[in-house]
Structures are given as C-alpha cells and as structure tokens.
Amino acid sequence: MSTQDAYEEYYVPHNSKLPIFASLGIFLTVFGMGNMFNETKAGVDSVFGEIVFLLGGLTMAATLWAWFSVVIRENHQKLYSDQMNRSYVWGMSWFIFSEVMFFAAFFGALFYVRFFVVDWIGGVGDRGPSDMIWPEYVPHWPMVNPPNPELFPGPAEIINPWGLPLLNTILLVSSSFTVTLAHHGIKEGNRKKLVNWLALTVILGLTFLVVQGYEYYHAYQDLGLTLASGIFGTTFFMLTGFHGAHVTLGTIMLIVMLGRALKGHFEADDCFGFEAASWYWHFVDVVWLGLFIFVYVLGS
C-alpha cells in the first residue's frame, strides 16, 4: 500500500461525546480530592469531597471504558489504515516519554538532596555555614537523623535492599520476559501461548504489588520509616509509591489485554493495544531498575 493510498483512508471520527465526559470526570476527581484533602487538614467532618471524588472516578472509569471500546470497535471495522496505527504508536511513545520526565523530576530531587543538601545543611560544601542553625545535625545518607527530629522523627532503620526489594526486582524483570513471550505468542498465532504467558505476567505484577504493600507495612510498623520521617522517607515513598501506582496501572492494562486475548482479539499484524501495554510494562520495569539501584542499593 503506498503512502498516498494509506493517507486517503485517514479516518476522522465525526464527533464524539467521550471527551467532554472525560473532562468532567477529571474535573470531579480532582475537585473531590482537593476537598477531601482540605477537609482533612482543617479537621472538618464531611464526606462532600469523598462523594465528588467517587463520582469523578466513576465517570472517568466509565468514559475510558467506552473510549477504548470505541477504538477497538473501529479497529475491528477496519476503519484504521496503517498510517492511523502509526499515529497511535507515536502517541503512545510520546506519552511514555512524558512519564519518563515525570519520574525524572523525582529522581532529580533525590540526587539533589542526596549529593548536595544533606551536606549543605551541615555546613559542608560551598553553600554557607548552615550548621549555625543545626548544630546537632551530622550529614549522613540515608538520613536517619533529620535536622529537626521533633517535626521529622527519623527512621530507626531503612529497608535492606537484599531482601524484599531484590525479590521484587526478580519478579518485575521476569515479568518483562513473560510479557515478551506472550507477544511472541501473538506473532506466532499461538493463542494459548499468549494467554498463558500474559496471565503469568499479571500474576507476577500482582505479586509485586502485594510484596510492596507488605514492605510498606513493615516500614511503617517496624522501622518508623514513613512519609514524614524526613527526606529519606519522603523520596523513598514518593519514588516507590509513584512507581507502584504505575505498576498498578500497568497491571490493569495487562488484565484488560488478557480479557481481550481470551475474547479472541489480536492478530500478528494487529495487536497495537497489546504492544502499548507491554511497552508501558517495560517502561515501568526500567524505572524499577533505577529505583532499585539508586533508592535501595546506593541509598543504604
């Protein structure tokens, strides 16, 4: 098919009710969340925020469901040319790039505090004699002794990388392999292979989440390592937390793909939905490797 022909078939939907609902959904979600947070902070006893948040979440979920259904249906109707599919490929790639930059902000924050601020607060380095303010403080990473221990009580201990985190690394890395094997399944037209490996990937993902949940529990209960235990806890939970949120999202995507695979979707030359989910999964995996190295191993 020449580019010229492909181009002529570019499908432009006439109009769509989906986006306005998605806008409304996102608005209600964040508006509800804002109210929730502010009510909690002000000590107001009200469920207004929760209700709006829930409404927003449901609207969002329903709209996304409908949206993807429409896209899948259109694809099955063969409305999409190769060129159209390329648009989706590009779109997904740039979306992942934006996610990379989001994590970059948090990694940047980690490096900055770790390599500069920890020392500067103790008056070490060329920023100024800040130790005037914090005479008791000794620069040390991981920071178990925040300068103001009353406001930010430091953790008793931090997580040992060679326990649960190592297990999680193994889980995620192997899930990257399994998802690739599932992809091979599509390419070979072997649905059973696809379904089995994909299901295993989902199980690995879920196990990862359970392990991480347990790790958090352990950190809070036993180690005194919390969001509020100073910058170490802050960066630790923010980075691993956002990563966990992305794993959750990725797992949901994979579950949806599993459902579609069971319904008989995906052909060797038509499986972008699956591929997008698997790219996302690989991206999440790579971020984890970064976390494992910079937060867990080099952090301790």
Partner: peptide, 11 residues
C-alpha cells in the same frame, strides 16, 4: 542581594 532561606545560611 542575598536570598534569606529558612534552614540555610548564606554569606
């Protein structure tokens, strides 16, 4: 002109 930043001392 030097910014006065809580928690830090600049010269």
């Amino acid at each position: 002109k030097k910014d006065a930043i809580p928690g830090f001392v600049h010269e």
